[in-house]
Structures are given as C-alpha cells and as structure tokens.
Design a protein around this nucleic acid. Sequence first.
DNA 1: CGAGGTACCTGACAGC
DNA 2: TGCTGTCAGGTACCTC
Length: 292
Amino acid sequence: MPELPEVETIRMGLAQALAGHIVENVDLRLKKIVLEGNLEDLVGSEVTGVRRFGKVLVIDFSNNLSILVHVKLTGQFVYLGPNRPSGVNFSSKLVGGNLPGKHTHVIFRLDKNGRLYYNDIRQFGWLRVILTEKVEEFKFISELGPEPLALEGAKSADFLTLEKFKNIVSKSKTKIKVLLMNQTKIGGVGNIYANDALFLAGVDPRRPANSISQSEQSRLYDAVLEVLSRGLKHGGATELNFVNAFGEPGGYQKYFLVYSQEGESCPGKCGGKIEKIWLGGRGTYFCSVCQR
DNA sequence: CGAGGTACCTGACAGC
DNA sequence: TGCTGTCAGGTACCTC
C-alpha cells in the first residue's frame, strides 16, 4: 500500500524509464479512473520530469501539461522499453501476468517501442491531466503538510523539521497515530510506517498527540524519519501488489517491526506479543509493554 | 475542531 | 468443491 517510500520508489524508476520518451498513443480502457482532463492531449509530447508530492505522482510533459496520479492501494506503473535496466527482478505474478492484463486500465505507447502500463486491481487510484502551472494549486497538494524526508522531487523547501513536528504534535488532541497519517499535517506517512514509527519510539498509538512529552516528541520524530528511510532503502514494502516502475517488488516487508505482526513476539526484548486493535478505521499493531 | 461511519473495489482467505 | 462472509486500506464525504 504505497506510502512515501513506495511512491518515491515509483517516482525514481519512472524518471529513469520515461526520460526522453514521447507519447505516441494512449489507450484508456477504464474511463472512470481519469477524473480530470484528457490523456489524448499528451500525444506527441515528451516527458520532461517526474515529481512527487506526498503520495501523489506528477509526470510533466513538454506541452505544459502534467498527469497527477494517486495510486491509492493497488495502482501500479510498469514500464517496458529501452530504458529498462538490465538484471531486473520482474514479478509477473504481482503485475497480474502478461501485460496488458485484466487490471490494465491505461496503456501509454511511447516512441522507441516503449510501453507504460497503468494497472489497478481495486480501481481506487486516479489520474488527472492538468496544466503544469496548476499542479501546486491542486487541493491535495496545496493542503499537503511538510514531508519528513528532504528528497529530490518533493517540495523539499518545506520539509518537516523537528520544530514543525513538535508544533504539530503539541497542538492536536487527536490520537497520535491518526495524526501521523493526516496528510494535511504530515505528508506521506500511511499505516505501515505510522505503526512502525510508534513502536520504534515506544509510544502508544492511542495517546492524544498533545499528551506526548518533549523527549517522546523527539524520539517519535527520529523514528518517523528512520522507518521511512528504511522503507526507501529497501525499495518500499510489498504488502499487496506493490512493484516499482520496472515491475520489481520492494523488500521492506521483511523488516516490519510490528505492522501485520499480530500474535508474533515483540521485536523488543520485553517478551510480549504484538496486539492488533482498530484505530482511526484501520488495523493498528503495537506492543502494549514497550509502547506507553 | 474532532470522532466515527461509509463508500469506492477486488482478491485472498477462513469457515462451513 | 463452492458458497458466504470478512478483511485489507487512502481518501473524500457525511453526520454527530
């Protein structure tokens, strides 16, 4: 379920894959996933860059149009063509067999015999075609909170400093885990990394944010950066069907601390077991011994 | 402002 | 085997 590390992994791959390609033809097979604009308007244009704002991808084109994409839970971009690196660990299973597949909703035919497939099993994701100059005015992006990692391709001038984090946390009565996942407060953190960050910091996910002490705030800030960095280092987490732009799965799922580990022994040395509760409408995993 | 519920959608899996 | 029910979650939208 793509969060910041997964979407950034897709972005890096797409930037490499699409560099210099020109769109020759677009085959839109599921019209409802394009919420705004017309993919046909991209025909004849060259990709000039790929950006990311939180969990939203932006593909820029030479005709001053951009595609905004939110892959939500199961959206995938898979590229085939001359810019594909050698030695790719392509997962046919995760992309749904041969391409195009049952869940391929858009096929971008590129010059030099390139192909970019957009797949989405659950059809929750969306694409929008808008003017490049309007990208940062798009509601989700303009309201996005600062991102924890200062990365190329994000609005790094506005990244989440410890000062900003403390300010956000101390001003909110919301349960800390729900706050971490609020995209208008902090950009890019979803369920996996919120669970793991709270474990790493030793903070109970149910606590009101403003009950967290100064030292806990610092620990939690460091933990958020740490788990996101780990996720990125391992090319994201493949929990459902996540793959990068070349069809390769991520590796962070092997290093989950508590996420999806219900009933397992706590990775700390407390001897406790990971519990699962329902919080903010989502499965929440934690150790009630280590997280106070 | 916060909390909680639902909708969107399909596949995986448990239980009978 | 095959049915039914439940769960998974990012975000928008709704009500209280």
